[in-house]
C-alpha cells in the first residue's frame, strides 16, 4: 500500500510532529521536555536528564542493564519510547539515597556483600531488589528464588553469588529497618 504525502501531513497535524512535549515524574520531580517521538526512554533519561545510572548494554532487550521502575514496575528502558512516559512516573537509582554521599540500605547491602565488580549491571540489580522488597513477601527469599527473580538482568562479572547475598541482606535491612552483619 502506498501513502500520499498529503495524508501523512494530516495525521501529523492531528498528532503533532515528530516531536512532542512530555511531562514525566522522574525521581520525585516533574520534568517537562520536548522529545523526538523516536527517542527511547533510556536515551531520554541519559542524554536529556543526565541520569547515567541507566546503562545501555544491548539496546534490544537482552541484558536488562537499562532497567528502571516505570509506575513502580521494572521495565527495560531501551524498549520504551520517551513519549510513552508522558504523565507517568519513572525511578532510577539516583532517587534512592538522599544525597550522593549517602547510600540507601539496598546499596549498602550491595557494597558490604560485594554484590558488584564493574558495576555495569548494578543500578538495574538495585532497582529490581527494591521492587522485590516492595512487592514483597514477608520472608527472606531462598538462593534459588533470588536467582529466578533477578534472571532478567545479566551480570558478566560476579557469577551472581554475591548479588544473591546482597539481595537477601537488603531484604533483611529493609524489613527490620536495621543493619545486619
Amino acid at each position: 500500500m502506498t501513502t500520499s504525502k498529503a495524508s501523512t501531513t494530516s495525521i501529523a497535524a492531528k498528532y503533532g510532529t515528530a516531536r512532542r512535549t512530555v511531562t514525566v515524574h522522574v525521581n520525585e520531580r516533574d520534568v517537562t521536555r520536548e522529545v523526538s517521538t523516536r527517542t527511547t526512554l533510556a536515551d531520554f533519561l541519559r542524554d536529556e536528564l543526565g541520569l547515567v545510572s541507566v546503562h545501555l548494554g544491548c539496546e534490544h532487550g537482552e541484558c536488562g542493564s537499562c532497567t528502571v521502575l516505570f509506575d513502580g514496575h521494572s521495565v527495560r528502558s531501551c524498549l520504551m519510547l520517551a513519549v510513552q512516559t508522558d504523565g507517568h512516573t519513572v525511578e532510577t537509582v539516583e532517587s534512592l539515597a538522599g544525597n550522593p554521599a549517602e547510600l540507601h540500605p539496598i546499596q549498602e547491602a550491595f557494597a558490604e556483600e560485594q554484590g558488584l565488580q564493574c558495576g555495569f549491571c548494578t543500578p538495574a540489580m538495585v532497582l529490581r531488589t527494591k521492587e522485590i522488597i516492595e512487592t514483597g513477601r514477608d520472608r527472606e527469599l531462598t538462593d534459588a528464588e533470588v536467582r529466578h527473580e533477578i534472571s532478567g538482568i545479566l551480570c558478566r562479572c560476579t557469577g551472581y553469588q554475591n548479588i544473591v547475598r546482597a539481595v537477601q541482606s537488603a531484604q533483611r535491612r529493609c524489613r527490620g529497618g536495621g543493619r545486619d552483619a
Binding site: 501523512t8 495525521i11 503533532g16 515528530a18 512532542r20 517521538t37 523516536r38 527511547t40 539496546e59 513519549v83
Partner: peptide, 11 residues
C-alpha cells in the same frame, strides 16, 4: 541501535 523516524500516533 536507534529507531528510524516514523509518524507517532497514540489513539
Amino acid at each position: 541501535m536507534k529507531p528510524p523516524p516514523f509518524t507517532y500516533c497514540d489513539p
